[in-house]
């Protein structure tokens, strides 16, 4: 930022930032302000009258068992998705780092899911777990396990977690692999000469050196699970059965567009904005992202 002005022009720089600023103001700042504003009012469904009620919308939310349930659901969903996706990716990245032949081919296959839209990822897994015609559901039933995610909330949660984790494997894999490749080989070799076995080497040298990547990915995965998985849930379970998979984003959509409770939905939006802000600041401030690249 400490670079001196290269060009002097009174008017040109404004022209250059104008398009971005206009779009930011109209579609980002203004709606965010509106959400904040709306969250303090109670409005009827037709928008004919509104009444200032202060923090009432927020108080209602936090007294609402459905909202608290949704908050809990989101946390469980994010945690499971993060653990599952990062675990599988780390294992595969460690293996891909140790082989020389064929690692490009493996990589080519592993990056596919990144390109698949969340609702499509959802539908692919839904098809495999479909109680009527799914391969995996069929296999599970063959083993005597009754699978029906349309009735069983835990199974529905498992299904959306699997689809969400699958989609995120590519991203985690690429970052873990980049992190692993940046670890100096000499360190690992020295430990091997001192007699440390593969698993000891991993846990005492590689894993600690990888921690900046791991922390960065944890934040990114939580953001992903919170905000980018709407499509999966909408396509697979619609928040059901009995709200077992209703995450916060899905609830904002559902209350705002289906339930037409604008004040409540706006209050939920404001809470979500606070969550994103916290996570983004965390990502920029406290997570040393650039280490190890």
């Amino acid at each position: 930022m400490q670079r001196r002005a290269v060009f002097n022009n009174k008017f040109l720089p404004y022209l250059f930032v104008l398009p971005q600023l206009v779009i930011t103001l109209v579609f980002f700042i203004w709606p965010a302000y509106k959400a904040l504003n709306m969250s303090f009012f109670m409005e009827d469904a037709f928008g004919l009258s509104r009444e200032f009620i202060g923090l009432q919308n927020f108080a209602t939310l936090f007294a609402d068992d459905y909202y608290l349930h949704s908050l809990r659901t989101t946390l469980v969903f994010s945690l499971l998705t993060m653990l599952m996706s990062m675990g599988v990716s780390l294992l595969m990245a460690v293996m891909a780092d140790s082989v020389i032949k064929g690692s490009t081919i493996y990589k080519t296959f592993i990056i596919w899911p990144y390109a698949v839209a969340p609702p499509l990822a959802g539908i692919l897994w839904l098809f495999m777990f479909h109680p009527g015609c799914g391969v995996i559901a069929y296999a599970l039933q063959g083993m005597g396990y009754e699978w029906n995610h349309l009735l069983n909330g835990n199974q529905a949660m498992a299904l959306v977690v699997i689809a969400a984790a699958w989609k995120q494997i590519s991203y985690n894999f690429l970052f873990f692999l980049a992190g692993l490749q940046a670890i100096p080989h000499s360190l690992v070799e020295a430990a091997a000469i001192d007699g440390a076995g593969p698993s000891r080497r991993f846990w005492t040298i590689i894993f600690p050196l990888l921690s900046p990547t791991t922390f960065f990915l944890m934040v990114v995965n939580v953001i992903y699970a919170f905000f980018d998985t709407f499509g999966i849930i909408h396509a697979v379970t619609q928040g059901g059965p009995a709200k077992a998979t209703e995450t916060l984003i899905y609830k904002v959509f559902n209350d705002g567009f289906i339930g037409l409770d604008f004040g409540g939905s706006a209050a939920q939006s404001v809470i979500l904005m606070i969550i994103v802000c916290t996570l983004t600041v965390l990502q920029f401030r406290y997570v040393e992202r650039r280490v190890n690249y």
Partner: peptide, 16 residues
Amino acid sequence: MIFLTLMLPVEVRIVP
């Protein structure tokens, strides 16, 4: 102002 947009993904402000 541009930085702020990072914190406002469309999902969190759909109604407005």
